[in-house]
Simulated scan of single mutants.
Amino acid sequence: MKNKYKHVEETQISISELMLPSFANFSGKIHGGYILNLMDQIAFACASKHSGTYCVTASVDTVDFLNPIEVGELVTMKASVNYVGKSSMVVGIRVEAQNIQTGNVKHCNSSYFTMVARTDDGKSKQVPGLILDSDLEVRRFLKAIKRIEMKRKRQDEFDSDDFIPNDYLKELENYNVQVNLKK
């Protein structure tokens, strides 16, 4: 692939959907799983638009449900590519819900989906680079790098064969946990 770059704004996507009773749980709030499904769809669309190819979800980071979404509210999701690697992209998604009668808008969720571009035979495919045109875009790219570094560090520390739980017991003293390790 020729070294090609795209502006962040070229691949931004926004979708809106009215929340129906069929999307709600028993307490009348919209199922978190339904919202995650919509987020996965917009992440796919955004990543595919950037890469020009089929993409798959590799991971989802930082899913915090900040405010409940009610039946009858208009949910808008905004997605943009915040980071690109060789074949991967981090798509940032912001979820807002608007009461269409009052006009009040609330931030309900922000999340980061790592998507990987694939060829027709399922192999990873190189994606275009990213052109950063604003301080916000630079900040988002750098935050994605830091999340990736923290994830790798956490995996290296806790997933290694030489991990020794006893080295960490002191850190657990202020938590609501009882440790009963067999010797």
Rank of each mutant, 00 (worst) to 15 (best):
R118C: 12
R118Y: 13
R118K: 14
R118A: 05
R118T: 12
R118S: 07
D120I: 15
D120Y: 12
D120S: 10
D120V: 15
D121L: 12
D121Q: 10
G122Q: 09
G122V: 05
K123Q: 06
K123T: 11
K123D: 12
K123F: 15
S124N: 12
S124V: 15
K125M: 14
K125Y: 08
K125H: 09
K125Q: 14
K125W: 10
V127L: 11
V127A: 01
V127R: 03
V127Y: 08
V127C: 05
V127S: 02
P128Q: 03
P128S: 06
G129Q: 04
I131T: 07
I131P: 00
I131Y: 02
L132D: 05
D133S: 06
D133H: 02
D133C: 10
S134K: 02
S134I: 04
D135S: 08
D135M: 06
L136P: 04
L136Q: 08
L136M: 10
E137N: 01
E137C: 01
E137V: 01
V138D: 04
V138H: 05
V138Y: 03
V138W: 06
R139V: 08
R139S: 09
R139H: 06
R139T: 08
R139K: 07
R139A: 06
R140Y: 03
R140C: 01
R140V: 01
F141P: 00
F141V: 02
L142H: 10
K143C: 10
K143Y: 03
K143S: 13
A144T: 03
A144P: 12
A144V: 04
A144R: 07
I145R: 02
I145E: 13
I145D: 12
K146P: 04
K146I: 14
K146F: 03
K146R: 08
K146L: 09
K146H: 07
R147W: 05
R147K: 14
R147M: 13
I148W: 07
I148E: 07
E149D: 09
E149Q: 09
E149H: 08
M150L: 11
K151Y: 11
K151D: 12
K151Q: 08
